[in-house]
């Protein structure tokens, strides 16, 4: 190659490369695209404790970079001899929706667009027709005469249809009965949302927005760590709290004491006594055979 040829071809190459670089400009605006570490991460159930430590460190730095708050991320495992059950007293619920917002705060759900794990249905007394229920009631005062309120969230089925349809096993049921999602393994196909008869699963169509001062820094890998765009999420019985022995956030905030949670294998727990002595009225859509761990009951 002569000198002129070299200069010409390198100039052409330079122009081509510059044009290519300039045309890739939108990539510069892509923030927080997946790191190589995350891309090469192993499947949750194949990770060794050392692997998990690295993953938790990565999540800690990622969250700190994105939200400006240093979180305390843990990977809490199910406890031996514990099987969780939730019981909700339909006689007591006043429909105030405090549980909905306490859950959003505890579990770092997106504020805009809004993702809420709990939906409170308003129905007339003497009926249980979910098709005719009202989600959007907003009177000056609740409860309204002649109506009852039924909060619906993930029912933590013993026979979960959402787990069966997941093509990549990104969601599964753990030993304590909680169906969890590995947000790093989810491919966002939303089959689980189609399979869930309770509308419990929600999809992050955009990157979730969580104001810095509303971020809950107490996080768990399978629980409330911030999600990315393109993954599903749902109620996980607050694993970051309940696997540390505490009550879920929706229970703590309920002003009517309508929500009860505990270990069904402990005969002294509230839920054991409720299931033994109260009129446990339904498992929602019992006829589908999903066998929820979420029971609705009545006083009297």
């Amino acid at each position: 190659m002569n000198r002129r040829g070299f200069l010409r071809s390198s100039a052409a190459f330079g122009v081509g490369a510059a044009a290519l670089a300039a045309s890739l400009k939108p990539l510069l605006e892509l923030k927080d695209f997946s790191s190589m570490e995350k891309f090469l991460q192993k499947y949750y159930r194949e990770m060794t404790p050392a692997d998990m430590e690295k993953v938790l460190a990565r999540i800690t730095t990622e969250v700190e970079r994105q939200y400006g708050v240093r979180p305390h991320v843990r990977d809490l495992k199910p406890m031996d001899g514990v099987s969780f059950v939730y019981a909700l007293n339909l006689t007591r619920c006043i429909g105030c929706r405090k549980c909905v917002h306490a859950c959003v705060k505890e579990n770092n759900q997106s504020r805009s667009p809004e993702i809420q794990y709990i939906r409170v249905l308003k129905m007339p007394h003497g009926s249980l027709d979910i098709e005719k229920s009202d989600h959007d009631y907003n009177p000056a005062k609740v409860p309204e005469k002649g109506f009852f309120y039924m909060p619906v969230q993930c029912q933590q089925c013993k026979n979960p249809p959402c787990v069966k349809v997941c093509p990549v096993h990104a969601t599964w049921q753990e030993a304590d009965g909680i169906t969890v999602i590995d947000y790093d393994w989810c491919i966002g196909c939303r089959y689980c949302m189609a399979a869930c008869p309770y509308g419990a699963r929600h999809f992050n169509f955009t990157k979730p927005t969580i104001p810095k001062d509303r971020l809950n820094p107490e996080m768990a890998y399978l629980g409330n760590r911030p999600r990315t765009m393109g993954v599903t999420e749902k109620c996980h019985f607050c694993v970051q709290r309940t696997r540390a022995g505490r009550y879920p956030a929706c229970l703590e905030v309920c002003p009517a004491g309508a929500r009860k949670f505990g270990n069904i294998l402990d005969p002294e727990s509230e839920v054991s006594k409720i299931l033994a002595t109260k009129r446990v009225f339904i498992q929602l859509k019992e006829d589908l055979g999903t066998s929820p761990r979420f029971f609705y009951y009545f006083d009297v």
């Binding site: 006043i94 429909g95 917002h101 809004e114 009631y137 000056a140």
Partner: peptide, 14 residues
């Protein structure tokens, strides 16, 4: 008997 309370805001839709 509990007096009525103002409920928290309903869901916002896109």
């Amino acid at each position: 008997k509990f007096p009525g309370r103002q409920p928290a805001p309903p869901p916002n839709y896109l």
